[in-house]
Simulated scan of single mutants.
Amino acid sequence: MFKNLQLRQKFTILLTIILVMGLSISGLVLSSVLTQNAKREVTSTALMLMETMISVREYTDSQITPELKEKLATSFAPQSVPAYSAREVFENLRKKGDYRDFFYKEATLNPTNIRDKADAFETTIVDKFKSQPKVKEISDFRSLPGGDIFYVARPLSVSKETCLQCHSTPDVAPKSMLTRYGTANGFNWKLNEIIGAQIVFVPASKVIQKAHQSSLGITLIVSLIFFVTILLVNIFLNREVVRPLKRITRVAEEVSTGHMDVEFEELSNDEIGNLAKAFKRMKLSLDMAMRRLKRPPGNTHEGTGG
């Protein structure tokens, strides 16, 4: 079937096959690249949010807690706990449209507030930070029954001695805190010890959606470029190859039927032009041969002696 098609149709099919194969291969590569870019973009946002929460913790520890010191002697105020302040600020931030899909947790192995207790998966992250102090950041996907999520984690350590005022031993902790949370959890921390991890979660669909949106846009642009290329190639092929070949074919057919008054036009110096020149030389040779054939034979007269 392919051999019965016209030259322009063959080129169109060939270019279309190249387009499909090119889009398929580039689509796979592009999807991987854009997914990595989306992960980096989400990671960058998550790290910015973590730095913001660190600032909130430091503000709470340096300015809020000292102001509530006298009150803490008689009644416990959770607003004085840096982890509590960070969590509450983040929840307020999530009310903004850009961050509603982000979730924040200070997953701690031995927290005062059970809300911050690390689950089995988060515990493995904390243990990795503890066993590999040089690892400062972990990001990957986590599978959950409700769907995959993407997470970014950083180690959380006891960086200030003021933290030990509440988390060293129960006998030095504020009585009001013991009344609220008891003495079973949140103690025996040590300075510079990694006690948990800052983790920001975001649904994996958000990462994949970002990648797909970028991939779709680029694919449409590439497809448009290929379509325009196929159109331009067809126009060029029709003008520079198909039409000249049709003219040469038509003239050759007329010459084959004995019409020697037609001429092969030399419109270019490329292969098509060389073909026209070859046909022109062939026509001249054929014309000369036909003239010789049409020439009447000469008469030879022998003289007789007398």
Rank of each mutant, 00 (worst) to 15 (best):
V262D: 08
E67V: 08
I230V: 05
V222T: 10
T124W: 01
T112W: 03
K130M: 12
M1V: 13
S159P: 02
P174R: 07
L19Q: 03
R87C: 07
M260D: 12
F103Q: 13
R57A: 07
F76P: 02
I194S: 01
K246S: 12
L49P: 00
G22C: 04
S215W: 06
I195Y: 03
L286H: 12
V251I: 14
V152F: 01
Y59W: 00
V29H: 10
E271C: 04
N185H: 09
L30W: 11
R100E: 11
Q6V: 09
V81M: 04
T229D: 01
S176K: 06
I272W: 01
V207D: 05
E263A: 09
N110I: 06
M50I: 08
F187R: 01
E263W: 03
Y151D: 03
S24I: 14
V255M: 12
N274G: 13
M50Y: 03
R250M: 12
E58C: 02
V255G: 07
T179I: 14
A204F: 06
S24E: 10
K117M: 14
K294V: 13
F264N: 10
D127W: 01
V233C: 07
L293C: 11
P155S: 13
P155T: 15
W189N: 08
K10S: 01
D261E: 15
K117I: 13
K130D: 03
R243W: 04
I230L: 00
T229A: 09
A289T: 08
I13C: 00
V89I: 14
A153D: 02
I208F: 11
E254F: 11
Q79P: 00
S85K: 00
V207K: 02
H167I: 02
P145Q: 06
Y151G: 02
F121I: 12
F141P: 06
I25V: 15
T108W: 02
I221T: 12
A153N: 00
F103S: 14
S31Q: 15
S75G: 09
Q63S: 13
A276T: 04
K206A: 11
M21S: 10
F2A: 03
L7N: 00
V42P: 02
N238G: 07
S205G: 08
L284G: 14
R8G: 08
F236D: 03
A197S: 08
H167S: 03
P170F: 08
R8L: 09
Y99E: 10
G22I: 07
R250K: 10
R115L: 10
T229H: 01
I64M: 03
K277I: 07
Y181H: 04
M290V: 12
K294I: 11
A153Q: 02
F76Q: 04
R115D: 11
A276I: 05
S159M: 11
S44F: 09
I114G: 06
K3Y: 10
F279G: 04
Y151I: 05
E302Q: 15
M48Q: 09
T169N: 13
A211N: 06
F121D: 14
G146R: 10
F11G: 00
A77H: 09
I235V: 11
D119K: 05
S214R: 15
T45I: 14
A173T: 04
R57Q: 13
P155I: 14
F103G: 12
N37C: 07
D270Y: 04
N4F: 06
Q63P: 04
T60I: 05
T108F: 03
G273W: 05
S143T: 12
V42D: 03
L49G: 01
Q63Y: 13
E122Q: 13
N269H: 05
C163A: 04
